[in-house]
Amino acid sequence: MLTIAMPKGRIFDEALELLRQADYQLPPEFTESRKLVIEVAEEQMRFILAKPMDVVTYVEHGVADLGIAGKDVLMEEERDVYELLDLQISRCHLAVAGLPGAKMNEIAPRVATKYPNIASTYFREQGEQVEIIRLNGSIELAPLIGLADRIVDIVSTGRTLKENGLVELERIAEVTSRLIVNPASYRLNGGDIERLVDRLAAVIPQP
C-alpha cells in the first residue's frame, strides 16, 4: 500500500486528473467528501489530504511515501525528499511585484511574502538587503496599505495583481507541481513507486 499526500485546493483536481489518465481507478466522489484520509483498496493506495505547504513535511517524515507539491513549496521548505517528476500541472511562477513606479524604502526596504525563505534567498542573491515580513494570504494587500514596498508571491494569470493595481517587476522562478518521494520509501518500496512514476511519466503533457 502506497500512501500519497495530496494538496487540497488548486493542484488537487489537476493531479487527480493526471492519475486517472495514468489509468488509476479512483472513485468519482473523491473530492466531495470531507475525509482527510481516503483509501482506494483496489489500487492499493491511500490518499491523505493536506495543506500544500504541509505535503513536503508528511513526505519527509515518511508518514506518506509520496506526495504532490508545487516547486514553490519545495523551494521554500528545502526538505530532504526525492523530486522525481515534473508533472507539468498547475503552472505558475514566483515573482516580485509592487506598485508601479514605487521605489524601495531606502532605510528599511520591506518585502511581504508567504515565502520568507525564497524571498530572502532571492534578494540576497541580488545583493539587496531587505526585511522580510511573513504573511499567510492576500499578500497583494501589503503594498496597498503601506506594510511593504514589494511582495513575493506566485502569479498564474496576473489577474489578482492587475485588479489591485500592482505590476510584476521581476520573475524569480517557474513553478509546476512535482512528484516527491520519501528517501526510505524510495529504497524499500522501489518497485511500486517506480511503476507509479513510469505510468505518470507516460501521460505527462510535454511542454
Binding site: E60, G62, P183, R187
Partner: peptide
C-alpha cells in the same frame, strides 16, 4: 552507502 529501514522515513 546509506541504510534505510521500514517504519522510519529517515536513514
Amino acid at each position: 552507502f546509506e541504510v534505510y529501514a521500514e517504519q522510519v522515513g529517515f536513514p
